[in-house]
Amino acid sequence: MEYVQERIATLHDLTGAAPDAPTGRSAVVVPMTDREYAGRAAERVLSTLADVDPERVVVALRAPPERVRPFREWLDGFDFDADLLWCNGPAVESLLADRGLEGDHGKGRDVWLALGVAAAGSEFVAVHDADAKSYAPTHVPRLLAPLAADYSFSKGYYARVENDRLYGRLYRLFVAPLLRSLDDAHDDPVLDYLDAFRYPLAGEFAMTADLARSVRAQPSWGLEIGTLGETFDRVGFEGSAQVDLDVHEHDHRAVSGSDGLSGMAEHVGAALFRVLEDQGVAVDYDAVRERYREVGAAMVDQYAADAGFNDLAFDRAAEREQVRTYADAISTPGPDRRLPAWTDAPLAADEVVAAAERALESAPDAADGVALDD
Results as ranks from 00 to 15, higher is better:
A196V: 03
D81R: 15
T33A: 09
R358Y: 01
A50P: 07
D104E: 14
R337C: 01
F174N: 00
A265S: 12
L182D: 07
A97C: 10
A355W: 07
S154L: 12
V352T: 10
Y199W: 01
V275E: 01
G16P: 11
V235C: 15
V283G: 06
F197R: 09
E123F: 09
E224F: 04
H267I: 00
I330K: 02
P141F: 05
F205M: 12
A355Q: 03
D286K: 03
G239I: 09
A60L: 06
A118D: 02
A159D: 13
V370K: 07
H139C: 00
D311R: 15
G103C: 03
F232I: 08
A60N: 08
V243W: 13
L173Y: 10
R293E: 14
P70Q: 04
A209M: 02
A159R: 14
A270R: 14
K133Q: 08
L143D: 05
A120G: 11
A313F: 05
D184Q: 13
A363P: 07
D344H: 10
R274E: 07
R316K: 11
H186W: 09
A304R: 13
A196G: 13
A21K: 06
L194S: 01
D81W: 00
P333R: 08
T48F: 01
G269N: 05
A282I: 09
L96K: 11
R160F: 00
M299Q: 15
D244K: 09
A118K: 04
A345N: 08
Q322P: 00
V127T: 05
Y135G: 00
Y171P: 00
V52R: 05
E6C: 09
E224T: 09
V92R: 05
R165M: 02
L194D: 00
E361G: 04
G257N: 02
D98Y: 12
V92Y: 04
Y303M: 10
D246S: 14
F309S: 12
A313M: 00
L191P: 06
D131A: 13
D104H: 11
D192F: 01
G89C: 08
D184A: 15
R320A: 10
R293Q: 13
P189G: 14
G229N: 06
L101E: 12
A145D: 11
A317R: 14
G229S: 09
G334P: 10
R172E: 00
D104T: 13
L194M: 03
W112C: 08
P346Y: 07
T332V: 14
G116A: 10
Y3H: 13
A176I: 00
A355C: 11
G108W: 05
D365G: 08
D373E: 14
R213N: 08
C87T: 14
Q279C: 11
